[in-house]
Computed example of a mutant assay.
Amino acid sequence: MMLKLSLAAVALSASMYAGSLSFESGAIKAHTEVFGDNTIDPVTKKATSHLSMDANPTTLKGSIEISMNDLYSDNKKRDEHMQDVLESSSFPKAVFDVKDVVAKSGDNYTLKGTMTFHGVSKAMNFEGTITEEGGKVRIKATSSMKISDFGVKPIKMMFLTVRDQVDLNVDISLKR
């Protein structure tokens, strides 16, 4: 009987640390370049979290998605062109599905998963930190991808071609 009560207490306390994580705030930024303009930095401050995590960050699982229509930069005309090139009406979301989180040192982790972008899914890793304080989980991580790997031709502007590599910077806060 005492063993059953102890197991029930452990299960109850573990469930207090488990659960869904909803997007609260933050930004997901993309950066690329073209000669003469190094400020092509579309960003979104909206995301949908389908993530869950127990007490340890290595238990983080699920996915996070953004709407391509929520990406914007400092140039509306360029944003309209970006939406056309990315075919956001046909491929409205980018989704990162977390498959495994590997502890490195301290709060540093590698998030291994699959990125689905423009209808193509590819293995991808993010490097960064995962911290928790006051019922909020903060993920700060970076990665890069080639848009051509996802079937998107690098954007051309006049006689210049935008760099194929896009650097991603995630800084989000999730609440339990």
Rank of each mutant, 00 (worst) to 15 (best):
D37K: 12
A11S: 14
D107L: 06
S49L: 05
R138K: 15
M145A: 10
F117E: 04
L168W: 07
F159W: 04
G19K: 08
D54R: 12
G113Q: 05
L5W: 11
S20H: 13
D149Q: 09
V34K: 09
E33N: 12
V85K: 13
N56S: 11
T131G: 11
R138W: 07
K146V: 01
M157I: 15
F126N: 03
L160E: 02
R78A: 08
F23Y: 15
S22I: 06
Y72C: 01
G106V: 12
M82D: 09
F23K: 05
L86W: 14
R78S: 08
Y72A: 14
K156H: 03
S143A: 15
M2C: 04
H31N: 11
S15M: 14
K146I: 01
E24G: 01
D97C: 08
S89E: 15
K76Q: 10
M16F: 10
R138D: 00
A141S: 13
M53F: 05
T129R: 02
F150Q: 07
D100Q: 15
S143H: 09
V137N: 00
V162D: 07
D54N: 13
M82C: 04
D107I: 04
A55R: 07
L168F: 06
A11L: 15
D100G: 00
A14M: 10
L12A: 15
S89G: 09
S89N: 14
T131H: 06
T39Y: 12
G128H: 07
V162P: 02
P92Y: 06
P154N: 02
K175S: 08
A27I: 08
G26N: 07
I139C: 05
M157S: 05
A8N: 09
I64E: 04
M115W: 03
I139R: 08
A47H: 07
T48V: 15
G106D: 12
M82P: 00
A94S: 15
V166E: 07
R176M: 06
F96A: 04
V34Q: 13
K122P: 00
F126D: 09
A123K: 14
L3A: 10
D107P: 10
S105L: 04
V166A: 06
A18I: 08
K112P: 01
A30S: 13
T114P: 01
T114L: 03
T32D: 01
D149Y: 01
K4L: 13
A55K: 14
L3E: 14
N75M: 08
T142P: 05
S6G: 13
F117Y: 08
F96E: 14
I64D: 06
S73W: 04
D74L: 06
H50F: 09
G151T: 08
A30H: 00
